[in-house]
Design a protein around this nucleic acid. Structure first.
Length: 112
RNA sequence: UGGGUAAGACAGACAAUCGCGCGCCGCGCAUGCGGUGUGAGGAAAGUCCGGGCUCCGCAGGGCGAGGAUGCCGGAUAACGUCCGGCGUAGGUAACUAUAGGGAAAGUGCAACAGAAACAUACCGCCGCUUCAAGCGGUAAGGGUGAAAUCGUGAGGUAAGAGCUCACGGGGGCCCAUGGUAACAUGGGUCUCGUGUAAACCCCAUCCGGAGCAAGACCAAAUGGGCGUACGGCGCAUGCCGGGCAGUUGCCCGCUGCCGCCCGGAGGUAGGUCGCUGGAGCAUGCCGGCAACGGUAUGUCGAGAUAGAUGAUUGUCAGAUACAGAACCCGGCUUACGUCUUGCCCGGGUC
RNA sequence: GCCGGCGUGGCGGAAUAGGCAGACGCCCGGGACUUAAAAUCCCGUGGGUAGUAAUACCCGUACCGGUUCGACCCCGGUCGCCGGUA
């Protein structure tokens, strides 16, 4: 994942939360918005509700890995925020991956 | 074999495939690509103490305020930490805990109860005047309280009282012995009424403040400010003049602009440094009961910036709790899985 | 990451140089008034045990210890919540 593909500006986050759509699922919630760029940008978040720093780190890693394994299935040109829910604790990669793809399909960002 | 107690170790390993941060090498204008090396903890946590480092303040020194610490000796860069002792408390024991200076320097407080809480006489007892009652003596007995004039026995007395004596207990002072010391043991002598300083306070020692979001450097776009280049009138939209450009070359007229550009400053977004080689780690030897110190040899073990260690499968008998570096060290405290060893108490067997 | 503050019944909030915890207001429950309700007035209101009851005892100030005769208060530690800081 290249550096330019990581969301980091507060203005970008605000734009996505304000103008984007949200798609909840069992373990993750997606916020997404078209960005008019030839590539997609992503961010992986886990709030303090998820748990301590070890649990938050693991949640983000599982989401990042799920996205990496399925990156080719996503359409380009979207800003996507992946947010972990506290139900993610103790889950395996396969569960998270399934939940993410489920949400992505309902958000209509897969295809191609 | 059951229970207890103390000390210590580890924190899954290996293989395969996919993937991540950083360093180095090669290729490439570059985004990058390939190779190779390396990559979280014993608590990384809480932020409770102590230092380094940085900025601010400060001539040097002293006094004061405020805060911290508080048996003795040692260790250390320093500490409220650690080690070895002493006293006290708990435990059958191994062992553990300990903010443990000063209450005859002063002040405050001690609710309720009780006569009285720092000086005191309610009941009682004794004596006298005397019917009750009053006056005086008394601290043995009763009663209150967390706390009330040392305990037991004898003498003594009107009744009593350390008033006197014996034994015991506490405290002050002096002496001797052991110990660097705290202190311990023994003797002599004096005297027998509080508690609280994690209440104010006194004494001794220590402390300037803020923190890596400290701080240093580079620095875009847009807007604004300054300098240079444009004058006058008007509060101002504006008006007059001047300059430049366009309108075919020139003049008038008309239109547009009053700058573009340049210089330097500030410093936002962003970036670079600070950023990891240090009171470092490992092993051996020497000194010390120990904490620790000295010395020799070897060695370099994260440095991210939305934040890098993950996923899947297999094997090992089985398998992981608490938990993720964010400037760096020394401690303390708290959370927590497994294993080893010493010691203590009890039970069984020989 | 760093720096501060707070924690008391169901709720908001008192109690403070240590001495009867829960004042006061709201909510809630019961009663009066009313045809019924609202408003108003009166009473009750932390938990447990024993008791027919009056009442008695024990535990309760986020949690765990310490100092003290005695702790919401003083001291140490833990947990949770809130705020500030680029």
């Amino acid at each position: 994942m290249l550096k330019k593909e990581i969301l980091r500006k507060k203005s970008d986050f605000d734009a996505i939360y304000r103008a984007g759509r949200s798609v909840p699922d069992k373990y993750v919630v997606l916020f997404l918005r078209k960005n008019d760029l030839p590539y997609s940008r992503t961010a992986f978040l886990a709030s303090k509700k998820v748990g301590n720093s070890v649990q938050r780190n693991r949640a983000k890693r599982l989401m990042r890995e799920s996205y990496r394994l399925n990156e080719d299935k996503f359409s380009a040109g979207y800003d996507i925020i992946f947010i972990a829910r506290n139900t993610i604790n103790g889950r395996k990669l396969k569960d998270v991956e399934k939940s993410m793809m489920n949400a992505a399909a309902r958000g209509k960002v897969t295809g191609r």
